[in-house]
Design a protein around this nucleic acid. Structure first.
Length: 816
RNA sequence: GCCGGAGUGGUGAAAUGGUAUACACGGCGGACUUAAAAUCCGCUCCCCGUUAAGGGGGUGAGGGUUCGAGUCCCUCCUCUGGUACCA
């Protein structure tokens, strides 16, 4: 009979589901556990794509492997089901987001099951389920109570097309990450989470986790920890102080101006006393009209206005003019900077434009001490100090230390650490999200909704069309609900939460998904978390991780959990491009749908091909022909099952002692080596090489007339995590009880993986001249004898042997 | 600019400092077939050599460390991901 997956894949899928074969054991809190987590997908109408399946299969192989190794495994799945696409679809078609989403979830589940992904569906969660978002709201309330959720009027990024606020992280080059529309600035009352309180820990604790270095670097970059000093400058003829943040106080003798952000607090407070008040106001008005994009596009072209104020540099009592300029950011540092045009490119550009003096305080390349007139002379990163009084001669790093201490001693400033990261803006003026559990009294003061009154359900009587105001503000039912509950004039917050709030804690809910009393059980969380393998697309490495880590640390501080990092080991799957090498897209017609591939070949083929394509993390193109190669492999596996010798195997494990059949010994050697290699490769997620080893095994074993039954059954067990369907089917056909997936992972016998002879390369002066057959444990003398006995090698030994390098089992190198 | 990652056959890719190119695809030749598909067998880095026996070269470029380098170090080039008036 031929390999015909259609006759059994569906059967096993149904049976595994009905039997709940992959149920996590929540009673067990002692065994080693394995939490296999795939970043919960957004259930889009397009269904599962090959990127999803790639990550899910990787998680699945690990889950299946560790189950067979005896660990208590949880492999949950959930839905990132709030968000813009469903809402935009509703605006276009009138179909409620609820329906679109629920339909998509059905499709996703079906597809996941078709691939044989071993999900415990009892742990399913969905961001849009009231029983889930009740607890998202509960978390908001906890943050609010601790002062970590707060409201403020802020200049925010506004997308005119989506009609909503965007987080800094969602603005790419001044454009909306979702629709590419130019983002504008708008002043609005918004809810924020105070993630900046956690900035230092978010940076430091990256040392604890096993993540790709690039991911850690990106996180660190985003957090942007900067050590520097805030220096106070007296403003001449006033009692005002202007504080500037700098990381390079070593260059302070080269300061020739101060620049202040036009929208900074200092300017707002003191514009009245600016000698050049009118000119300043004009500049402020001009710059406030610019969009983020315009500001960026100006690039090197600096603009500014002189305030008429002068600050005093305590170091040398020099008068420094104070300017306004929009290259200074109001929300970094103190919103003001000391300008050192000789040693900062931007300061140089500004000084040139405004005609400000430039002083060299660091020697240039090759000790250049000449006047700085060209951009290329601006020395930033290294060098020795000059024109700097007591700092002269020191390198910039020494000088930085020295002057920081000096300024602090004198009381002119204070060392500080600054972060690039901003508080997390969570308000969204959209419908399809988690309602913010805040109610306003008639005076407009916000109050947290009582925990017993959660969840605040999303109203259904809304008009989805965006107007810039949250759609649920126009719900009559929502208005009435608040007034009935709290009295006339009271109303609920009409904004919803950023969907990143939903996804920042879903992995906590998975381990206690049906708890109606609390968000999750602490003891369960302490047992199951942190996750043991988190697969996530490289596109999520900034926001989602930062926010999830923030929540985890908050829970830790609240005493809810005893760990402070949620994801121990994390890996990324590389993006799969179309067969033409281009990004998969409807536009190019190169989208591969896992469903079609399953129909064409089999679920096992799709699984194994996706793992065989290359290293998990690498980007790689789809290749239908290579996929066919994996299908051929599975066909061979199927066909070889007909070569089982039932008389020889008999189901009793054989040991090498007393073995009389050399062929059986050879087969045992093959399969035990396979166990070893597959275990190794699987544990380090080297799935592509593991599959190559299955293929080598099949190529080698097919040379035998008959295959021992025990050997074959061992092979099936070892293949089971990668190809769950065919192995289950063949396992049963050989008369074994259901299910192969609950079998114990075979252990290899160390005696059987040793080679008796290996082929060793022999080098003469480092050049390979031949090979010898030798026992890997043999001594140097044996190796030399064998080498000399080999005519091809011996003919190169033309003079006295000066030195011999012999490494057992590796190499013989003869130096003459 | 800054921070990552990567450059190996026609292609996807393998190689704890130890025979570079495993495994697979594709290609070529053969078997089976009326034929095709499927399947099976052989060859397949480049150059010289008659197809052989033999050599020689070769992992983006150039240096270095080493008995020995795709792998480690330095300089550079290219591609790629992220990020950017962050003081």
């Amino acid at each position: 009979m031929k390999y015909d997956p259609k006759t059994f894949e569906n059967k096993w899928k149904e049976k595994w589901l009905n039997d709940k074969l992959y149920k996590a054991n929540f009673e067990d809190t002692k065994s080693d556990k394995f939490y296999s987590l795939y970043s919960y997908p957004y259930p889009s109408g397009a269904g599962l794509h090959v990127g999803h399946s790639e990550g899910m299969v990787a998680n699945d192989i690990m889950a299946r492997y560790w189950r067979m190794k005896g660990r208590n495994v949880i492999y949950p799945m959930g839905w990132d089901s709030f968000g813009l696409p469903a809402e935009n679809y509703a605006i276009k078609t009138g179909v409620p987001p609820q329906k679109t989403t629920d339909d998509a979830v059905v499709t996703f589940k079906e597809q996941i099951n078709n691939l044989g992904i071993s999900i415990d569906w009892d742990t399913e969660v969905g961001a849009h389920w009231p029983e889930y978002y009740k607890w998202t709201q509960w978390i908001f309330v906890q943050l609010f109570k601790k002062g970590l959720a707060y409201k403020k009027k802020a200049s925010v990024n506004w997308c005119p097309k989506d009609q909503t606020v965007l987080a800094n992280e969602q603005v790419i080059n001044g454009k909306c990450e979702r629709c590419d529309t130019e983002v504008v600035q708008k002043d609005l009352e918004q809810w924020f989470f105070k993630i900046t309180d956690y900035a230092d820990r978010l940076d430091k604790d990256l040392d604890k986790v096993d993540w790709p270095d690039s991911t850690k670097a990106t996180q660190r970059n985003w957090i942007g920890k900067k050590t520097g000093i805030n220096i106070d400058y007296k403003i001449e003829n006033t009692n005002k102080i202007l504080t500037c943040f700098t990381t390079r106080p070593d260059t302070n003798f080269g300061v020739t101006f101060i620049a202040v952000a036009p929208d900074s607090q200092f300017v707002k407070d003191n514009i009245q006393i600016f000698p050049n008040k009118e000119e300043s106001q004009k500049y402020i008005d001009e710059t406030s009209k610019k969009t983020e994009l315009e500001r960026l596009q100006e690039g090197k072209k600096k603009t500014g206005a002189f305030t008429g104020l002068y600050a005093i540099n305590n170091l040398n009592n020099k008068k420094i003019p104070v300017y306004l300029s929009d290259f200074v950011l109001a929300n970094f540092g103190t919103g003001a900077l000391v300008g050192v045009p000789g040693h900062d490119l931007r300061d140089f550009q500004f000084a040139k434009t405004m005609g400000i003096e430039i002083i060299r305080v660091v020697k240039g390349a090759d000790g250049d001490e000449s006047e700085i007139t060209e951009e290329s002379q601006v020395q930033e990163e290294q060098g020795a100090m000059i024109n700097s009084d007591f700092l002269n001669g020191m390198n910039i790093h020494e000088a930085t230390k020295k002057i920081m201490d000096y300024i602090e001693e004198k009381g002119w400033g204070k060392k500080v650490v600054n972060f690039r990261i901003r508080d997390w803006l969570v308000s969204r003026q959209r419908y399809w999200g988690c309602p913010i559990p805040i109610v306003y009294d008639p005076e407009g003061n916000p109050h947290a909704v009582e925990e017993s009154d959660l969840p605040i359900l999303l109203p259904t009587d809304v008009d989805f069309r965006p107007t810039g105001e949250s759609p649920i503000a126009r719900s009559e039912e929502y208005k009435k609900r608040a007034e009935e509950k709290y009295g006339k004039g009271w109303h609920y917050e009409a904004d919803t939460m950023d969907t990143f709030v939903d996804s920042s804690w879903y992995f906590f809910r998975h381990i206690d998904a049906n708890d109606s009393e609390k968000a999750f059980d602490s003891a369960k969380a302490d047992y199951w978390l942190p996750t043991d393998l988190y697969m996530i697309g490289a596109e999520h490495i900034v926001l989602h991780l930062l926010y999830s880590r923030f929540f985890t640390k908050f829970f830790f501080d609240e005493g809810i959990v005893n760990f402070n990092e949620p994801f121990y080991k994390m890996r990324h799957m590389g993006i799969i491009s179309g067969p033409d090498g281009r990004k998969m897209s409807k536009r190019w017609g190169n989208v591969i749908n896992p469903n079609d591939e399953i129909a064409k070949y089999s679920a096992d083929t799709v699984r194994m091909y996706e793992m065989f394509m290359g290293p998990l993390a690498d980007p790689k193109p789809w290749n239908d022909r290579s996929e066919n190669g994996v299908f051929r492999f599975l066909n061979k596996v199927w066909d070889l099952s007909n070569k089982i010798s039932s008389t020889e195997g008999g189901g009793t494990p054989r040991l090498p002692s007393g073995m009389d059949d050399p062929k059986l010994l050879d087969q045992l050697r093959l399969v035990h080596k396979l166990i070893q290699k597959i275990s190794e490769d699987t544990e380090i997620l080297s799935f592509n090489t593991a599959i190559a080893k299955y293929m080598e095994f099949i190529n080698a074993i097919s040379a035998f007339e008959k295959i021992d039954k025990t050997v074959w059954e061992t092979f099936l067990k070892v293949l089971a995590p990668y190809a769950p369907f065919i192995t289950e089917e063949l396992w049963g056909k050989l008369g074994n009880g259901y299910s192969i997936h609950t079998q114990k992972w075979p252990e290899f016998d160390p005696e059987l993986i040793k080679d008796e002879v290996i082929t060793m390369a022999v080098q003469i002066n480092g050049k390979v001249r031949g090979t010898i057959q030798i026992n890997p444990e043999a001594e140097e003398r044996d190796a030399m004898d064998k080498a000399k006995a080999d005519e091809k090698i011996n003919k190169y030994i033309t003079s006295d042997v000066r030195k011999v390098i012999y490494i057992k089992g590796k190499i013989l190198n003869i130096i003459i």
